[in-house]
Simulated assay, not measured.
Amino acid sequence: MVGCGGVSAMHFDGYQVHPERIRIAAACDPRPERREWAQQTYGVEQVYASLEEMIDGSEWTAAVLCTPTNVRQDMVRTLAAAGKHILVEKPLSDTFTEASLIVDVCADAGVHLAVNQNFRDHYAFDIARRLISDGRVGEVHGVVHTNLMFRQDRGWRTQIQRHAMSVMGVHWFDGFRHMLGREAAWVWCRTSSSPEVDCAGETDAFTQLLFDHIPVSYVQSFSSRLRRTDTVVLGQLGTLEFGYDTVSLRDKDGSTEWENPYAGRGKPESTYLSLNRLLDALDDGGEPSNSGKDNLRTIALLDAAYESARAGDPVTLTGGLPT
């Protein structure tokens, strides 16, 4: 475990219930109180003040990288040079250019790189994907997604220029891709920042996307006094409505509902699934579905939304990548 900040608890919680698959060999963090926390809370025997010390002092196969994005590229270079496979917290990087460099570094070193896009499972995107693939809604005519909350972050996140979409939009952009099985061709976005939230970046974003011919409307707010998160998929034969917990399909026969086992307390398990996809790839020699290469298209969407907001014009993509 590289970095023992707040997000690492989700990883520790998910991994420790799978001793048949994972052994947490070591952890590193420059803060002694976080190293002590990892030892006392999760029984991690070997802890180190730096990544270099951990590489030299212990034996392990894969690293889970939970550091802030501004130091991620250097950490990946060090891990790849040591031949370690990597699961990176999202976003993979702050920009598409940096993300591409990270993917290239790992490819050149011959190590696998995956991204913890656990909302494919934690949010009900994967259930919706299966229903769409099975033809239960027919041709998809459009998607409306809303994520409203009042959120005041602390620490390093409040200091970076990319905020609300970087924190949550990276989940939703990836989820749209996963659910629809398509790549975006066009993005339009407008952002704003509320004085009610202490941060350097945007608090609100209104984004329109085209996945081939399918329009997606996405609203993000960290300043809303109304709390709401839901997704509606309008189809030729039926309508899906879902959030974290359940998926409802309404069609001519009535309404059917499915529960998402990875919502709520299942969030650590959704994180384990992300790591396990990397481990499966190591076992069979394939590439994980959440690979860094795949995730470039998620980061490209994030980049395109910010560029559209900056320039005031739509941004076009080819195969989900910058034109």
Rank of each mutant, 00 (worst) to 15 (best):
H178D: 09
V219C: 00
V233C: 02
F211D: 04
H171F: 10
T203Y: 06
F242E: 07
A184T: 11
Y244T: 08
A184D: 06
F222P: 00
D212M: 01
L209Y: 09
Y218M: 11
Q208L: 14
L234T: 13
F222D: 12
C199K: 04
P195V: 14
Q208E: 14
F242Q: 03
A184I: 05
D198L: 15
L180P: 02
L234Q: 10
V247Y: 05
R190S: 04
V216A: 03
H178W: 13
R190Y: 03
A184W: 03
A185T: 15
L234A: 12
R190Q: 12
T239N: 03
G238Q: 04
R177G: 00
T191P: 00
S224G: 08
S224V: 11
L210C: 02
E202H: 04
T207S: 04
G238L: 06
V197L: 09
E202L: 02
S224E: 02
R227S: 09
W188P: 00
L180M: 09
T207R: 00
W186F: 15
G243I: 11
W172S: 03
R182L: 08
M168T: 13
R177W: 01
T203F: 05
L210R: 15
L209R: 13
V197M: 10
V197N: 08
R190I: 07
V232W: 11
A205G: 06
S194Q: 06
Q236S: 08
S217F: 12
F173L: 15
Y244G: 00
D198W: 08
L210G: 00
R190H: 11
V219P: 00
T191F: 08
A205W: 06
D212H: 12
H178T: 07
V219T: 14
G175N: 13
Q220L: 14
I214Y: 04
T203I: 05
W188T: 15
R228Y: 08
A200L: 08
D245C: 00
R228I: 06
Q236A: 01
E183C: 01
